[in-house]
Amino acid sequence: MHHLVSDPDGRVDLALAVVVWVVAAAVYLAAAQLPPPLFDPVGSAAIPKLVAVVLAFLATLIVVQRVMRGRRGRRETPALASAPAGDADPVATDAPLRPGIAAICVVILAGYTAVMTFRILGFREATVPFVILLGGVLSRFRRSTLLILVPIALALSIGFSWLFSEVLYIDLPVTRWLAP
């Protein structure tokens, strides 16, 4: 069990299993509250309950496998083919991952959606700062990238608004201040 917590892959598997157990329990309990079927032999609850049980079993199996692999000290190997030796490792690079940037991007994506949900800004107004902000964060606000992003942001904002309202007759979200 110690291996499960000390190994990064083990921690990921444990976190996955915990999330799946919680989801499976919630689904099973919600399905259990559904009334029994009247006409058809299956009803609404049977398949969700079955899938929840299978998911909980698979999550447990993943944890058990990880614990047993840790005990043996074996390394995971691909199921069908292994990479040949030599100059063959694809996407091998020294560049570090950027979890902080990825987290900021998620916040920006959610923020863009939120301002349109609460109609603080409409699609046309929100898209320009969104494109510049997301592209800026990804490029670390490189001046050359920002210079390209500004006209693109304006084109996307005005172009899609025009296309949807005038051609497709679909109103994209509008700010509450401009709503009729």
């Binding site: 994506l109 863009y112 959606t113 349109m116 949900t117 699609f123 898209t127 969104f130 494109v131 997301l134 592209g135 800026g136 990804l138 490029s139 490189r142 990238t145 390209i148 992003l149 693109i152 942001a153 996307l156 899609f160 949807f164 497709l168 679909i170 109103d171 994209l172 979200p173």
Partner: peptide
């Protein structure tokens, strides 16, 4: 090509594509 330019464009396309399906921001969420 600079992905910092491509990715925001792609997400904006996602937003309009999902929204246009049923005219609701819930689909963007």
């Amino acid at each position: 090509i600079d992905r910092a330019v491509l990715l925001p464009i792609i997400f904006v396309c996602c937003v309009v594509g999902a929204y246009a399906l049923a005219n609701r921001i819930y689909d963007v969420w």
